[in-house]
């Protein structure tokens, strides 16, 4: 038996919305520690990895490891029926062919029950090795979203270059070119919200090119976290990570474009 409950069901809906444009279906792997999901887009350019810790749930019980094969568009249809402040419970039998989703309003005056048919998904998992990245940038997620959206009106590819002082996003297209630089926030600045700062950890300067179409896709997760972390290396996939307070994180990996 697998059973879990989230006070903020809305978070789960946002998570599914952050995944469903990139991958159509995937396996929720549930074990005693939490839930994980990995999926690659059909062109093998981007990978999404979700890791939810059991500590983030108000209830969590997983007697035996279970794999829930889920079509995200279908799940999203059911989650659409959930109220913004509803509590969400998910239940599945060990060998069942469906999972139940229960939405309960704050005052328990409305309870909704949905059964989602599960799929058998034959999906191999990619092994992502532990990597020491050359540059790690933490910035407001809304700022990253705005940059990706605005630059994609000008070109298809963004060049991200990082120095100790700043991270620069450059774009070029038929109409011309441009760049936007974000300076590292002053470290002595004790005032203000940490989530609004730009922090750069740098081992050595790095520059890589990426398709804006995918980055724009990743920014669907902006609603999940005030900050985003970008990890870059030379000729390495970019890791874009959104951390949710104590629930876990969603990570996107994007293969670079390489000059040939």
């Amino acid at each position: 038996m697998f059973e879990c409950a989230l006070i903020q069901g809305e978070l789960f809906r946002k998570l599914i919305a952050s995944v469903q444009d990139l991958v159509q279906d995937g396996n929720f792997m549930c074990d005693a520690n939490g839930i994980s999901l990995q999926g690659m887009d059909s062109s093998h350019v981007a990978l999404v990895a979700l890791a939810l810790k059991k500590e983030g749930f108000v209830e969590y019980r997983c007697d035996r490891d279970v794999t829930l094969g889920i079509n995200f568009a279908n799940l999203a249809k059911m989650l659409k029926c959930m109220g913004a402040k509803d509590r969400l419970s998910i239940r599945a039998q060990d060998e069942g062919d469906s999972a139940s989703f229960v939405f309960e309003s704050e005052d328990s005056s409305r309870v909704s029950n949905f059964e989602l048919k599960l799929m058998q998904i034959d999906q191999e998992q990619l092994g992502v090795p532990e990597t020491q990245y050359k540059a790690v940038i933490r910035m407001p997620s809304s700022e990253f979203q705005r940059i990706c959206k605005d630059l994609s009106a000008i070109g298809d590819t963004v060049s991200i270059s990082v120095t100790k002082e700043a991270v620069k996003f450059s774009v070029g297209g038929d109409i011309g070119s441009g760049d936007m630089s974000l300076r590292q926030s002053e470290s002595g600045d004790v005032d203000g919200d940490d989530s609004e700062k730009v922090m750069i950890e740098l081992e050595e300067p790095v520059q890589q090119n990426f398709a804006l179409r995918y980055l724009n896709n990743f920014t669907k997760a902006t609603a999940l976290s005030k900050t985003v972390t970008l990890s870059l290396g030379t000729d390495m996939p970019l890791v874009t990570e959104y951390k949710m307070d104590n629930l876990g994180s969603i990570r996107y990996y994007l293969a670079p474009k390489i000059d040939e």
Binding site: L47, Q125, I258, D259
Partner: peptide, 14 residues
Amino acid sequence: VDVQCDLFFFYNFR
């Protein structure tokens, strides 16, 4: 010319 790499170039199936 920018060539889009794919993830299999970097990662293998587990």
